[in-house]
Measured scan of single mutants.
Amino acid sequence: MKATFQVPSITCNHCVDKIEKFVGEIEGVSFIDVSVEKKSVVVEFDAPATQDLIKEALLDAGQEVV
C-alpha cells in the first residue's frame, strides 16, 4: 500500500531525518520519501503498518499532518 501525507511543518533536513527515523521504526514500512519542497511524505507499507500508525509517528516526530 502507498500513502501520501501533507506535512506543512517540514522545513529542513533535520525534519527529514527525524521523520525517516520515526516512520522507519514502524514494522511493515518499506519505503519513505520526504520532500521539503512539496512538504509531503510518501510511504509504502504493508501490514502491520497502517496509515494511522504512520500519522501517529509523524506527530511523535513533532510534525503537523493535514
Rank of each mutant, 00 (worst) to 15 (best):
M1L: 10
M1F: 12
M1Q: 13
M1W: 11
M1I: 09
M1G: 09
K2C: 11
K2F: 08
K2H: 10
A3W: 13
A3F: 09
A3N: 05
T4L: 09
T4M: 10
T4G: 04
T4V: 14
T4A: 06
F5L: 04
F5T: 03
F5N: 01
Q6A: 10
Q6M: 11
Q6R: 13
Q6D: 11
Q6H: 14
V7I: 08
V7H: 03
V7A: 04
V7Y: 04
V7M: 06
V7Q: 01
V7R: 00
V7T: 04
V7L: 08
V7S: 00
V7K: 00
P8G: 08
P8W: 07
S9G: 10
S9M: 07
S9E: 05
S9W: 15
S9P: 03
S9K: 05
I10W: 09
I10M: 07
I10S: 03
I10V: 07
I10G: 04
T11P: 09
T11V: 11
C12P: 07
C12H: 09
C12V: 07
C12T: 10
C12F: 07
N13K: 14
N13W: 13
H14D: 15
H14P: 04
H14K: 15
H14L: 15
C15W: 10
C15A: 11
C15N: 08
C15H: 11
C15P: 05
V16A: 08
V16R: 09
V16E: 03
V16T: 06
V16H: 04
V16C: 07
D17G: 08
D17M: 12
D17V: 15
K18L: 12
K18V: 10
K18P: 03
K18N: 06
K18S: 07
K18Q: 09
I19E: 00
I19Y: 02
I19A: 00
I19W: 03
I19R: 00
I19L: 04
I19K: 01
I19C: 00
I19Q: 00
E20W: 12
E20M: 15
K21E: 06
K21D: 04
K21Y: 10
K21G: 05
K21Q: 08
K21H: 09
F22R: 07
F22I: 10
F22W: 09
F22A: 13
F22G: 04
F22K: 08
V23C: 03
V23L: 12
V23Y: 03
V23D: 01
V23T: 03
V23W: 04
V23Q: 02
V23E: 02
G24E: 04
G24N: 08
G24Y: 13
E25N: 13
I26T: 01
I26M: 05
I26F: 02
I26S: 00
E27S: 09
E27D: 10
E27N: 07
E27W: 07
E27A: 12
G28N: 02
G28A: 01
G28T: 01
G28E: 02
V29P: 00
V29L: 03
V29E: 00
S30E: 07
S30Y: 11
S30T: 14
F31L: 09
F31S: 10
F31P: 01
F31K: 13
F31R: 13
I32K: 01
I32R: 00
D33F: 14
D33M: 12
D33V: 10
D33Y: 15
D33L: 13
D33Q: 11
D33K: 13
V34K: 00
V34Y: 04
V34R: 00
V34D: 01
S35C: 08
S35Y: 04
S35Q: 07
S35E: 05
S35I: 06
S35N: 11
S35V: 05
S35M: 05
V36D: 03
V36H: 04
V36F: 08
V36W: 08
E37P: 10
E37D: 09
E37W: 09
E37L: 11
E37T: 11
E37N: 06
E37S: 12
E37Y: 09
E37R: 09
E37V: 08
E37K: 09
K38T: 12
K38L: 12
K38D: 11
K38A: 10
K39T: 06
K39H: 09
K39P: 04
K39Q: 10
K39Y: 06
K39W: 06
K39E: 05
S40K: 11
S40M: 15
S40N: 08
S40W: 12
S40D: 05
V41C: 04
V41D: 04
V41E: 02
V41Q: 01
V41P: 03
V42A: 07
V42R: 08
V42M: 11
V42C: 08
V42N: 06
V42Q: 08
V43N: 01
V43R: 00
V43C: 04
E44M: 13
E44K: 12
E44Q: 08
E44N: 10
F45W: 13
F45G: 02
F45Q: 01
D46C: 11
D46M: 14
D46G: 11
A47G: 06
A47S: 07
A47P: 13
A47W: 14
A47K: 09
P48K: 00
P48R: 01
A49C: 05
A49E: 02
T50D: 04
T50Y: 03
T50R: 04
T50G: 01
T50L: 03
T50H: 05
Q51H: 14
Q51C: 15
Q51Y: 15
Q51V: 15
Q51L: 15
D52N: 09
D52W: 13
D52L: 11
D52K: 13
D52E: 13
D52M: 12
D52Q: 12
D52A: 13
L53V: 07
L53S: 08
L53M: 11
L53I: 10
L53N: 05
L53H: 07
I54E: 00
I54D: 01
I54Y: 01
I54H: 00
I54P: 01
I54T: 01
I54A: 00
K55V: 15
K55D: 02
K55E: 10
K55C: 10
E56C: 10
E56R: 14
E56S: 12
E56T: 13
E56V: 10
E56H: 13
A57Q: 03
A57C: 04
A57R: 06
L58R: 00
L58M: 06
L58Y: 00
L58C: 04
L58S: 02
L58H: 01
L59Q: 09
L59I: 13
L59K: 11
L59P: 01
D60Y: 12
D60S: 14
A61N: 04
A61D: 02
A61V: 05
A61F: 07
A61G: 04
A61R: 00
G62E: 06
G62K: 04
Q63A: 08
Q63N: 05
Q63H: 15
Q63V: 13
Q63M: 15
Q63K: 07
Q63P: 03
Q63Y: 15
E64G: 05
E64I: 15
E64P: 06
E64H: 10
E64N: 10
E64S: 11
E64T: 13
V65R: 05
V65N: 05
V65F: 07
V65S: 06
V66D: 07
V66Y: 11
V66H: 07
V66K: 09
